[in-house]
Nucleic acid binder design. Structure first.
Lengths: 302, 302
DNA sequence: CACACTTACGATATTCGTAAGGATT
DNA sequence: AATCCTTACGAATATCGTAAGTGTG
């Protein structure tokens, strides 16, 4: 049997009006069509719901039984559809995004703030993690998408290029390398340098670009903030991508571009293959794509 | 917007099968028809609910939101219809009936017992009251119908004749009137007699039948049981309808028919005019009609 | 190339609205 | 006589099933 919202609305209208013609008007139907609607409901239910003579329309005991359920059902149906439309209109929802620590700290926050200002009803989740956990979270559907780089095994994942994140030299202002506006990579590698841990995307791309021949780093640390401290203390210099430079915009430190062939860490928007984003996630996704990364990004926003 | 049970069932089927063809079979539809059903649901909702390529069908985040509501809505709808069908099949319901005290004590109980045995799910209410309250309860819809006699003002009420309740003489076995198998009314009225109160239907019919000329009663009492006591003590005789005779089937008392023109209290099934009975009430109504009153009725049943 | 969803289209079933019918006050 | 629900019937709409189309692995 097929119960429809229209039948329930007609039933409730007739319960309230106790008058076929007026109830029909309320349902934007002619009276005979309305009459047929009630009849089909009665047939489906197997009970007479209204006692009608031409002068009076009265509820049967069975109609009173149905009335309670009918009102609740209608309310629940409209609530369910409203809920769904809220999600469609991005008035409600949930987006989870994974991002490399550098992006999660610098580029992303102002964009998340903007998204939240526009869609305050949407719950936001940000997972800042290293490359592998980022991509694993996408694979397992734990997050809607990730902003990260790529790895060897990208099976089940779709990636869209976002930005070529150029490496820069960071060193003390009184360092010899700070004298030039642009430095050559081979000049940098003659000095003691600080590297991030091997599981970081920054280090992976650097190793890949430098090859085996390059001098090993003086120190390996986990966090960029530690690199900042070491460089500031004069322990060594470092090579970091543009999106991390906000860590190094401090007095006594300078940032220098690298000459020649661009040394970059390519960044991607990574999603699960063959799987559409939720309306809310698509909204954030589009916002991120509409605000490409730039060297200046990541500075303290308003 | 019009949400239907069929749409919800299709949606849930697809959520569970994640396969259009199989879900369509479960709904007894061809796959294209099923596909259209899902599409209309998506259009009504304003959200894509399934990501389908020819190889895989996946739920969107919005579908997960709807799934919970859809299952609950379907369960509630089926519950509501089941409830209604239970009332139609007299598996559930409620009947309230009013009856004159004599009938409520004698004739009705075995029939109510039989009705309850057949439809144990139906709640029974019996209001034993004098004629006027009985009919008022019908007028106000407090009870479904009454088993009673009629009065002058029967407006808004429909009555169907049930039984002509013949009056009988009751007296002590050693009373002079007890000598004859059948007594004449004018012989009875020469003896002191006990009457019920003037608001009882028994008394009203008796007064109407006897006219002004008859001797007034020695005593007027409220309850038939009191009449029994008075007659048994030899205070007087009494004239009571057949349906009350079970009160007088006691040692030392005799019951005698009246000769000549039948002196009766006509009894009716009284319902509110132009108003159908509930399925449950109709059931009891029919049962009562199928078991006409008889002189022997009202004796202690099994 | 096989499976699975979509589109196209003619047939069927529902539902609608207009008009006539019947009942009640 | 007026009101109001029901029935009748042709028209519009929706839905269905068959068959062809398209895309994915």
């Amino acid at each position: 049997m097929n119960l429809s919202a229209r039948q329930l609305r007609a039933f409730v209208a007739l319960v309230e009006e106790r008058h076929f013609t007026r109830a029909a008007q309320r349902c934007h139907l002619t009276q005979p069509a309305f009459s047929a609607l009630i009849r089909t409901l009665e047939e489906a239910a197997g009970v007479r719901l209204f006692d009608r003579n031409t002068r009076r329309v009265e509820l049967t005991a069975e109609a009173r039984v149905l009335e309670v359920s009918a009102r609740r059902l209608l309310a629940d149906m409209e609530l369910a559809m409203e809920d769904l439309r809220d999600h469609a209109a991005r008035r409600r929802g949930r987006v989870a995004v994974a991002a490399l620590p550098s992006l999660a700290a610098g580029w992303l926050p102002p964009l998340l703030a903007r998204f939240h200002a526009e869609y305050p009803g949407i719950e936001l989740h940000l997972r800042d993690a290293l490359l592998d956990p980022c991509l694993d979270m996408v694979s397992q559907g734990e997050v809607d998408f990730a902003v990260a780089s790529r790895r060897a095994d990208m099976s089940g994942l779709d990636s869209a290029f976002l930005h070529a994140d150029r490496f820069h030299l960071v060193c003390r202002a009184d360092h010899a390398l700070a004298q030039q506006a642009t430095v050559r990579l081979r000049d940098v590698l003659r000095w003691p340098w600080i590297a991030l841990a091997r599981n970081s995307s920054v280090r992976k791309h650097l190793d890949q670009a430098l090859g085996e021949a390059a001098a090993p780093p003086l120190l390996e640390v986990e966090h960029l903030a530690t690199v900042t401290g070491l460089v500031q203390a004069g322990v060594g210099v470092s090579l970091v991508p543009g999106m991390t430079l906000f860590h190094f915009q401090r007095p006594g430190l300078v940032i220098r571009s690298l000459a020649g062939r661009a040394l970059t860490r390519p960044l991607y928007m990574v999603r699960r293959k063959g799987r559409a984003l939720s309306v809310a996630a698509q909204g954030l996704h589009d916002l991120l794509l509409a605000h490409p990364m730039s060297e200046g990004a990541g500075e303290a926003g308003p």
